[in-house]
Amino acid sequence: MDYFVQYLCAFVVGGLICVIAQVLIDKTKMTSARILVLFVVCGVFLTAVGLYDYLVEFADYGARIPLTGFGYSLCKGVFNSIDEYGFRGIFTGGLPDVATGVVMAVVFGLIASIVSKPKSKK
């Protein structure tokens, strides 16, 4: 039962975050690039004021996997690093926590560009 509730929370929260983006795309004619930037920056600021932690606690991967979660990791990393190292933590804390995603995307991007070709839409 515990698992079921946890999965339901992840599904609902993750889904709702995407719905917010969908409404923005359809209603404001904002390009998806702008919306993604907005989401990351929102993630950073919501984490900074302490709100996003509740969401992660409640929904776990439902809050980590959307791009707002990327902002969450950046902000968490910076704060933890400042607690540990002081001033230099402002600059060294953010990227290490999101490095996995970025590095893997780069590696897979390189591999994909060599082994696969874009196809016209069906």
Partner: peptide, 19 residues
């Protein structure tokens, strides 16, 4: 947006221009 906002969409936005 359901496929743009999750981290899989981030991967897609890196891999697709690479290809």
């Amino acid at each position: 947006a359901g496929s743009i906002v999750p981290i899989t969409g981030f991967a897609n936005s890196v891999v697709s221009p690479a290809m």
